[in-house]
Write a protein that binds this DNA or RNA. Sequence first.
RNA 1: GUCCCCAUCGUCUAGCCUGGCCCAGGACACCGGCCUUUCACGCCGGCGACGGGGGUUCAAAUCCCCCUGGGGACGCCA
Length: 488
Amino acid sequence: MTSVHGGIIRRSPNVNPDQVNTMSQIVTRFAPSPTGHLHIGGARTAIFNWLLAKNAGGKFFLRIEDTDRARSSQEMTDAILDSLSWLGISWDGEPIYQSERSELYNQCVEKLLETGHAYWCSCTPEEVDAMREKARAEGKKPKYDGSCREKGLGPGENHVVRFKGPETGKTVFKDMVKGMVAVEHAELDDMVIRRPDGSATYNLAVVVDDSDMGVTRIVRGEDHLSNTPRQILIYEALGLTPPEFGHVPLIHGPDKKKLSKRHGARSVTEYRDDGLLPEALFNYLVRLGWSLGDQEIFSRDELVASFTTDNLSSSAAAFDPDKLSWLSAHYIKEADPAHLAKLLPAYLEPLGFSGVAQDKLAAIVPLYQPRAKSLVEMAESARFFLVADADLEYDAKAVKKILTDEAAVHLAKLKELFSGVEPFTVAGLEEAAKQYLDENELKFKAIAQPLRVAVSGSTVSPGIFETLEVLGRDSVLGRMSRALDQAS
RNA sequence: GUCCCCAUCGUCUAGCCUGGCCCAGGACACCGGCCUUUCACGCCGGCGACGGGGGUUCAAAUCCCCCUGGGGACGCCA
């Protein structure tokens, strides 16, 4: 009564080459339940499965587990698909909806009934609860006690169908990340596979669907590990070959506790709203629980080329917002400025800036690529570039500290000089400033901060000449005038 | 409670399968320095771990056992 699965050898000797080929095609899937947004745990699972398929040149399917009609919604389904797309994950064919497949499930339940692998049960939920309570009280595993196993009941009011599992022996399988896992059949109880209303339960539907979809490898969260022996038993009873399973540990919060809303159990959408690039989240999630030597940064192509299940970690990982932030900064540095300029308006809008010209943004972006950790941060820092000169707000403390009488003298001179600088570029401005500095035997420090405060309103900005160039002559001169007014 | 899974720096991890090259390597964070025009970037350096106990062995982070700790599952949810 021992069954072993998951080995690599699954070919029978007499199949023809063509068939071997189709059979060896790798098929993976991601099966979210549309009862909430796509969270990072689910996103990581999706990524792993997608990568697995891509690496093998196989297929990656989507299945929407929406059998819980009350809690599922089309809006959530759409949101999940959106998140996947944003991450750059594409799927083969159309998503499959479990809610449309009850007929298939019922056929399989019938087959199980006919072959003696399932039976009707008339026990009420209350009765079953009592059985479980009793077992628990005796220090045993809470289980349905199998009262109806041999009763030979038929369909009837409030009758469910239960799977008739083996009572002895054990199921052993080779998990792609855990290795050999064994569970005694005595630990399992006869699970309900069909409810009184005729609907199928999770374990049955999953098996039927994965088999029907031709899924060959399943990577999923460790919370499904204990379901696996049950599912394997259903595969066997149905005369089907189980796929290979890989159970990745759940992601923990930074405190090693359960992932909570507070620190990371957030949806992919929220990270997008925070101004992360999808590349950063993708890279971070992959590295959380998977590694390839010492490499930290991976392009998508590298990942597709090198991702295998061998390097998946078997121990749980904690979510680290700092490291994610570091990756975000990295990908912003690497990104094409024009691309970022296209993304920026979405983050500028909430700040009250809309319809900013693309070429203007494209000029601003490079100044912030080395400093911004997110697009939100970039948008906020870039504010002073976008406000009208007359609306620029001056930080009182900065004005008091930097725009001294002496600074005002320099600013006045510089303003005159700048009005004639041609071209109005970093090189031209630098040259003009240098000349002024040399003539008056001044250090650059004497004018850097005054200029910065004059044009940005604060003591912080990108390099001053870059800032001046991007601002343009009119703004620079206008703002310098305003600064001189403030100073006096 | 029962069963299953897991255990290297604060965090992500390499190394573990095929013991010696590991008084344990990389990255994030942190600390210090350099660069400098503010803030960042960058560069250099530092701090910092094999959970505990038994074995096996000439030799153990690596193999075995126990303990402890953590997580998950025990649904007519998925």
